[in-house]
Nucleic acid binder design. Structure first.
Length: 276
DNA sequence: CATATGTCCTGAGAGC
DNA sequence: TGCTCTCAGGACATAT
């Protein structure tokens, strides 16, 4: 579930490690199938030992640890956490990075194990992750570029927002919230949105994502998401439609929130406020 | 090229 | 109580 606001919160929470030097990288014993790691843990450990963290950045929904020539890219996907303390349970710990002089350790924990770890030469990030794969970041893209990109997608707007090649960072939860705020029906074709609707959508996207970052992300009922210090997010209390099917619409109070499925994912919206 | 579908994975919750 | 089934969805591979 970690989307842009949760990953941004993780990045901010672990930024203390900038300047710290890696003593060792290890794959702790894990009861489950190992997560995808590229290259092998052995090569990663041998390469990164002794390097110093120079920056922690976010690339869409990925955490990037920059160490000069090399970068370690952590992709939490559904249940992954990047944290400095208080692992929820040892059995799902997937990667551990220890820093010299016991300053601290960084943990990549992932219950479902869909997350991935990738080590790349810094110069390869552009080619391997951005060219043809990741669109501009949802908080960096300008309004004109946003409109242009949407106008090339004939799929429903909800599906377009989820496509990381169109723009990076928006996931299933925030897509529904953004469309609700913008008062746009999720099934409307992206390319056919009117100019005023595109502007409303762009502004709603920025507002929702920035507010969610301020609230440090969303921790859903399963309690999985935690920040780097094991605190839950607070934005779940602000959700207007996500996972609220059957509840009265918080805006109009007349209709009930409806749940539909688009591209195998749940979408929530108000049929009265968001007309097709 | 754009779009659609299958796959990975574990745990929570529903239903019997 | 304890079993089986379904669902949650991010990103990529593969197919149309």
């Amino acid at each position: 579930m970690p989307e842009l606001p949760e990953v941004e919160t993780m990045c901010r929470g672990i930024r203390h490690i900038v300047g710290q030097t890696i003593e060792q990288v290890l794959q702790p014993p894990c009861a489950y199938r190992p997560i995808r790691m590229q290259p092998s843990i052995g090569r990663i450990a041998a390469t990164l030992q002794g390097l110093t963290i120079e920056e922690v950045t976010r690339l869409g929904k990925r955490v990037v640890l920059g160490m000069g020539d090399w970068a370690l890219i952590l992709q939490p996907k559904m249940t992954g956490l990047v944290t400095l303390a208080a692992i929820p349970d040892q059995s799902h710990l997937r990667l551990q990075v220890d820093f010299v002089a016991h300053q601290s350790s960084l943990y990549f924990w992932d219950r479902r194990g869909l997350g991935t770890v990738e080590m790349l030469k810094s110069g390869e990030i552009q080619q391997r992750l951005i060219d043809g794969r990741l669109g501009p970041d949802a908080l960096a893209i300008g309004c004109g570029e946003f409109c242009t990109r949407l106008s090339r997608v004939r799929r429903p707007i909800k599906v377009a927002l989820l496509d990381q090649r169109v723009l990076a960072g928006v996931g299933n939860l925030y897509a529904s919230e953004i469309l609700f705020t913008a008062r746009i029906h999720p099934a409307r074709q992206a390319a056919r949105l009117s100019r005023p609707r595109k502007l409303r959508l762009y502004n709603a996207m920025r507002e929702i994502l920035q507010t969610a970052i301020r609230y440090e992300g969303s921790t859903l009922a399963d309690g999985t998401y935690r920040d780097a210090l094991n605190n839950p997010g607070k934005y779940q209390n602000q959700h207007q439609v996500y996972a609220r099917a059957g509840s009265p619409c918080p805006r109009c109070g007349q209709a009930s929130i409806r749940r539909i499925v688009q591209a195998q994912r749940a979408t929530f919206y108000c049929p009265r406020c968001q007309r097709l």
